[in-house]
Design a binder for these strands. Structure first.
Lengths: 197, 197
DNA sequence: TACTAAAAGCGAACGATGGTCGCTTTTAAG
DNA sequence: CTTAAAAGCGACCATCGTTCGCTTTTAGTA
């Protein structure tokens, strides 16, 4: 990277992604909190301060990519949610997309989700808004299902939060009862049957 | 506490409880990870090393009491689970006991549950066994419900984990949709209807 | 009564951490 | 050739969790 010439925003974003994927290799193995900035820098082949040139704090390294992925999930889910089919079918499709995200790239999003819950409380506040956006998307689908007579009259936000909070721990567990796909399908079955009108 | 005379195990346990409830006052406000050993010691009116005389590590302070409460919950739930009534009714009663635990002492167990998820990964392994014990209790109830024809044939461990993992985040939320009682009741409704034969 | 070992309590010190400061090198503009 | 600006980064800082070893108190023993 030549000095003396300021980087464009694209170059900064590209550099962040490069650094992230390099540091991810080490922290996904031993845990984000268990990995020091010195170790992260070493695995990216840069100096410790370089991390601070691209990220405000240590927590921001994880937040930046967690939010990136959560945005992608919300957008992908939004596309599915806009299909012209019954709400319960679309909800099921959205949750399949969610599972795909959880499992992609050696469960990167899954692991980021788990690590995000272990960040400092201040850091978690930053993520909250984007989590709400995804919750609201599911809430909309559940509301449609209620209007269509497919779902009974439950609190849609509660149901949305119930579903989301169930996802990661049910799939990412030390006591699996089947494949991730099977566990998700069964969880969805129980949930959707619980909503059935 | 007189020196020169070794403390009995009861005295040690009593002392631990005293210290814990003193340190809890400060870390429940600002987060366990956000509170230093120096601050914990100060709030208990003891020296920093005194904490190490009673607890092996910082994490052990929280683990000791989290496990204590989880044992109490499992025992209380066990008593309810042994009643002579339909399994679906008993499951509902057990979850009421669970909510009582989550809400007691200004949500002490709830907050410990949340903080426990932010401990070091090694520390979390320590808690796992006791978590499994509670999961197995609910699994047993669900299995009975299936045998009684009250529940349909789902994987009982998956369903148990689904329910437990739903509890804390649904009730302890920044986006409540009612009182804790109401949110729990509705969550249980959705879940039990989902299991219905 | 004096001595001694053992126990509780604890502050100084240690090695490690996240984060900052300011230096070095490279680059383009004038 | 000079200069300002930018990227990169290691030494340094304050604070952390944990350990070491000291002080005080106590009871048992000679």
């Amino acid at each position: 990277m030549p000095k003396g010439i300021p980087l464009t925003e694209e170059e900064v974003a590209k550099r962040r992604h490069e650094i992230f994927h390099q540091v991810a290799r080490v922290f996904l193995k031993k845990g984000f909190q268990e990995t020091s900035m010195r170790e992260l820098a070493g695995s990216a082949g840069v100096g410790k301060s370089t991390l601070y040139d691209y990220f405000r704090t240590k927590d921001d390294i994880l937040i930046y990519f967690f939010e990136d992925q959560l945005n992608d999930l919300t957008e992908a889910a939004q596309k599915v949610a806009l299909h012209n089919s019954p709400a319960d079918f679309r909800l099921r499709q959205v949750m399949k997309v969610h599972l795909e995200f959880l499992q992609a790239n050696k469960s990167l999003f899954m692991k980021l989700t788990t690590e995000a819950q272990r960040l400092k409380l201040e850091s978690q506040k930053q993520i909250q808004k984007k989590r709400h956006a995804y919750q609201d998307l599911l809430r909309g689908l559940i509301e449609e299902g209620i209007r269509e007579g497919k779902f009974r009259n439950v609190d849609p936000l509660l149901a949305a939060r119930m579903l989301i909070n169930t996802m990661a721990p049910v799939v990412f567990t030390t006591r699996p009862t089947g494949t991730a796909q099977e566990m998700l399908e069964e969880t969805l079955d129980i949930f959707l049957k619980g909503l059935q009108a």
